[in-house]
Design a protein around this nucleic acid. Structure first.
Length: 724
DNA sequence: GGTCGGCC
């Protein structure tokens, strides 16, 4: 809204056409104070409570609605008690006050006039002077009125602090009549209690309320915020000196002051400090609890020998190979035996090392021995793949643990899961809190098989569970390196290995190679080269279908080399559309038949999962309907469901985790500096089965490859598992 | 130099 379109409207609320307490949204008919020929105008806005007869002062702008004509859209509205007698009758008789209808409203106003509020509040006994009002009704009127007044004064107070109506409503709903008190005592409680209010908002409210920069509640909130921020980038804790430094900088406060308040938080058990790995580390209480639970449960598991049915392992493996027709290599057989012997085992390794074959063999053998198996994975897509590759039911961890939203888990230490062997795939994506939920719900006698690639991108949430378990040296691990899927001389594989060791991969061009680096030193050149590769060079040379076989993987969404820009140019280049073709536009993105799309959240009704890639088969009009083919599965989308889809000519490397493609193209430049990290490049390169091409700046590739430990996550799990 | 991502 431009500043000159702002306007102020004053008048009397004649009618409340619509009002919902849920959001406070309202549509009012207002008689303006002056001018306008006394004609009613429509006002749209937000307020917790509005009563006909009230005087309104609204700030906002006039807008034109196609259906309803000119309306006043209020950003802010202030309502006040009516002053005129007519208004008073209207107001009191609106149902606002229990015990007063339109009849009594008239009688009361006739009797007391504008002093009516004073009478109700201070000398309510006088209400009994009105015919028909006894003691009971008089008390009812007074109580009801005082409650209304409290709500009103809270809203006025919040508005005075510069808090918007919708936020004020949420605050009022959370704290009720104590809202003002809560805010005056500690506005930082808002950050903890109100969704959508963070430290920064609370801090600016506190500043407006006149709270000093070095006030203890402010410093404490800042420390908690610094830890919360850290958990957002994957740390379950921070070394004490780093935490103090971060918090002091953000709060613009003295280090000693921060240190003092940290002691207060420790005493209040809101944070926990522990001496780990030769230094003091500070945790948020919740993460500390989760990490300790993980360590404790894992150590209990590890103390017990496996209790699988006794068997001759070699015979069992031979039987299984015969049954399935799959021949196991020596390294795979060793992994299977370990899994049969251990209470808990981690199987880790990159793509193509045969993790799936090992899991299948273990499952086949143990199921033949009547062992009850349970399969799960952290993402819907990974669960679906696990289910397909084993032919058994596999669920997301959230579904397995019967997650009900809002922190409620149906399965926990009081209601444990059923099963003898739990197989969790794609464990690199499991964070500390989810792992602690799983271990809590695991039966005492359960066996646990964790499968994943520790070199891939770390979990979204805080922690590095798989990493920490492996490096603790106390959890049995089978690390697979022998490649079965690709040819051993594959440059993709050797490049992936180099990257993992922090070395620049071999970039010398060779006609036989399946890994290429094309040096381009400007964003425009990189983009042009990739479009050309996809449209002309790769289909001509290798016979790839651009939309089906080739996947562009970007480090970022934004910028010239991000997914958004690539999707736009690649859609233009590969599927330009024509005049006769019906297309649907949504949020600036056009969807046409032939487009490559990706599903962005799990949809169990449709049977598609976050990360599934498909192609638009048809786009129909009247009614608008888009049909997408995911392999053999045809899925229909209504216009309102299109937010579940995005164009997928280019996707982020993060989103590609867990998928593979015949050909992968990776744009890489220093402009993506912030993202350049070893695990990112490793993940991208290992997505390609037959051909991987990196296009961009050699310096960017070098930066990424070297940046391995730079982004280490602060956790305490490794040490907890190790000793002490 | 300023970012990505899961689940219900």
């Amino acid at each position: 809204m431009s500043p000159d379109s702002r306007a102020t409207l004053r008048g009397v609320v004649e009618r409340v056409t619509f009002h919902t307490e849920e959001t406070g949204y309202c549509i009012l008919k207002v008689r303006p104070e002056k001018g306008g020929g006394g004609e009613l105008v429509t006002v749209l806005g937000n307020t917790p409570r509005v009563v006909p007869g009230e005087e309104i002062e609204a700030r906002g702008a006039w807008v034109q609605n196609a259906e309803y004509g000119r309306q006043f859209k209020a950003e802010h509205m202030k309502l006040a008690r009516p002053k005129s007698l007519d208004g008073l009758v209207h107001y009191l008789g609106s149902g606002l006050i229990e015990g007063i209808g339109s009849k009594y409203a008239k009688r009361i106003v006739d009797k007391f006039g504008t002093e009516v509020f004073d009478i109700i509040e201070n000398t309510s006994a006088r209400l009994q002077e009105v015919e028909g009002i006894g003691k009971k009704r008089r008390t009812e009127i007074r109580d009801s009125w005082m409650k209304q007044k409290a709500v009103h004064s809270i809203m006025v107070f919040l508005h005075e602090q510069g808090i918007s109506t919708s936020r004020a409503l949420r605050i009022y709903k959370t704290y009720g009549e104590e809202a003002v008190q809560v805010l005056q005592q500690n506005p930082y409680r808002l950050a903890a209690d109100i969704h959508g209010v963070g430290f920064k908002t609370a801090d600016s409210i506190a500043a407006q309320m006149g709270m000093a920069k070095d006030a203890p509640p402010r410093i404490r909130a800042g420390i908690l915020y610094a830890l919360d921020e850290a958990s957002g980038s994957g740390h379950t804790c921070l070394p004490r000196p780093l935490l103090l430094e971060n918090a002091a900088k953000m709060l613009d406060a003295a280090l000693e002051l921060v240190e003092l308040q940290l002691e207060g938080l420790l005493a209040a058990a809101e944070v926990v400090q522990e001496h780990i790995g030769g230094e003091e580390r500070v945790f948020l209480a919740t993460l500390h609890h989760a990490e300790k639970r993980v360590a404790m449960r894992l150590r209990t598991l590890l103390e017990r020998p496996a209790t699988h049915p006794p068997m001759d392992e070699d015979k069992a493996i031979a039987w299984c190979q015969q049954k399935t027709g799959l021949a196991l290599a020596e390294s795979q057989q060793r992994a299977v035996k370990e899994a049969l012997r251990q209470r808990m085992l981690i199987i880790t390794g990159g793509p193509g090392v045969g993790k799936t074959t090992i899991v299948n063999t273990v499952l086949t053998i143990l199921r033949a021995k009547k062992v009850r198996t349970v399969l799960a994975a952290p993402t819907g897509r990974a669960a679906q793949r696990l289910g397909e590759s084993t032919g058994l039911e596999a669920r997301t961890l959230h579904r397995l643990l019967e997650y009900q939203g809002e922190g409620v888990w149906g399965r926990n230490q009081n209601k444990r899961l059923d099963g003898d062997l739990f197989v969790i795939d794609e464990c690199s994506m499991v964070d500390t809190q989810l792992m602690s939920r799983l271990l809590d719900a695991l039966p005492e006698e359960a066996h646990l098989l964790l499968v994943g690639d520790a070199d891939q991108l770390p979990s979204v949430g805080a922690g590095a569970v798989l990493h920490d378990c492996i490096s603790s040296d106390v959890v049995p691990v089978v690390k697979l390196t022998e490649i079965f899927r690709q040819a051993a001389q594959s440059r993709i594989i050797t490049a992936a290995h180099s990257i993992n060791h922090g070395l620049m991969p071999d970039l010398k061009p060779s006609a036989e190679a399946d890994f290429f680096f094309l040096e381009r030193n400007s964003g425009e050149e990189i983009q042009q080269t990739i479009v050309q590769l996809m449209k002309e060079r790769l289909p001509a040379r290798y016979g790839f279908d651009p939309a089906k076989d080739i996947q562009v993987l970007c480090p970022m969404n934004r910028q010239l080399l991000g997914t958004r820009a690539f999707n736009e140019v690649l859609q233009d280049a590969l599927n330009a559309g024509h005049e006769m073709q019906f297309e649907v536009e949504r949020f600036g993105i056009k969807y046409r038949a032939g487009d490559k799309v990706i599903q962005t959240r799990n949809n169990y009704d449709k049977g598609v999962f976050n990360g599934d890639i498909g192609h638009i088969r048809t786009v129909e009009s009247e009614p608008v309907k888009i049909t997408v083919a995911f392999d053999d599965l045809l899925v229909e989308y209504e216009p309102g469901e299109l937010d579940e889809l995005q164009l997928a000519y280019a996707i982020t490397i993060h989103k590609s985790q867990g998928s593979e493609f015949p050909c992968v193209i990776i744009p890489l430049a220093m402009a993506q500096f912030i993202m350049l990290e070893r695990s990112l490049i490793y993940t991208a390169v290992t997505r390609g089965r037959r051909l991987v091409i990196v296009v961009g700046e050699q310096k960017a590739l070098g930066t990424a490859v070297r940046n391995g430990e730079g982004r280490r996550r602060y956790t305490g799990l490794r040490e907890r598992l190790g000793k002490g």
